[in-house]
């Protein structure tokens, strides 16, 4: 049984259907990718899974428990963490404090592990930004701010990590480092679901890929399966009307 199962998720904003009966499953210890053209509903799907967006219909099940109606912070306490496409760091806080606030919070529902401050430092070290620990995040370049966000999610000790475009704003070597880090994390048993536009990053890293187009999940499979899927090619290239209603 997959760690996360979202089934039949539909979200309507007035007349616009952002997600239409979309389903996804995410396995522990794997990197799962979600790709799709802009406006396909990827970020909305993330919002549904984290509770920031109510669903019109559909269920989200984490580790066998239905969490569809749980509030955002309760889902976080069950192990869902995420980053944001447009970075959401806490501007008033330093890099270390951004992570510390998460580490302190985590101890509310799980008292194991080191003291929050040590844990926060460990998270910074894991993503490789200890040298900027006491800088204010407000002034950081995008790449570093993304790493702060990632370190912050790690401090909650998630079981499922949702990453919204983790490589955007990173340069080549940083992207490589990010891929290595994510591989490391999954080896520890973490489930990663990421939305990404960088195809070489996605294809090289993900075990499974789901393709979302106009709110519908049009394909799902290994990278090679997805690449050869005609409906995916038509969704991206717009050559054929077969995949689009």
């Amino acid at each position: 049984m997959a760690l996360l199962e979202a089934t039949g998720v539909t979200v309507r904003f007035g007349g616009l259907t952002a997600l239409d009966d979309a389903s996804i499953s995410v396995e522990a210890g794997q990197v799962t990718g979600m790709i799709g053209p802009n406006g396909a509903g990827k970020t909305t799907f993330f919002n549904v899974m984290t509770g920031l967006q109510d669903t019109t219909t559909g269920r989200v099940v984490l580790d066998g428990r239905d969490i569809t109606r749980l509030s955002v912070h309760r889902r976080a306490r069950r192990g869902i963490a995420r980053t944001f496409q447009r970075i959401e760091v806490f501007d008033q806080l330093s890099v270390l404090d951004n992570v510390l606030v998460a580490a302190e919070m985590r101890r509310r529902w799980d008292r194991s592990g080191p003291q929050p401050r040590e844990e926060a430092m460990a998270c910074l070290e894991r993503v490789g930004i200890t040298q900027i620990a006491d800088l204010s995040v407000a002034a950081l370049p995008t790449g570093s701010a993304r790493l702060v966000e990632l370190a912050r999610t790690l401090a909650t000790r998630p079981r499922l990590l949702l990453l919204d475009e983790p490589s955007s704003g990173l340069n080549g070597s940083e992207t490589q480092a990010m891929a290595d880090l994510l591989r490391n994390l999954t080896e520890d048993g973490l489930a990663v679901l990421l939305v990404e536009h960088d195809m070489s990053f996605v294809m090289g890293l993900c075990h499974r890929i789901n393709v979302l187009s106009f709110g519908e999940m049009i394909a799902s499979g290994t990278p090679t399966e997805v690449q050869s899927d005609p409906s995916v090619q038509s969704a991206y290239l717009g050559t054929d009307h077969g995949a689009v209603r």
Partner: peptide, 24 residues
């Protein structure tokens, strides 16, 4: 203290704070 950090966190981004398990 951790309270101050939490307050500033909800000020800067309620959404991000909530996804870290902070009860607004």
């Amino acid at each position: 203290s951790r309270y101050g950090r939490r307050w500033m966190a909800i000020h800067d981004s309620e959404a991000a704070a909530a996804t870290l398990g902070i009860s607004l």
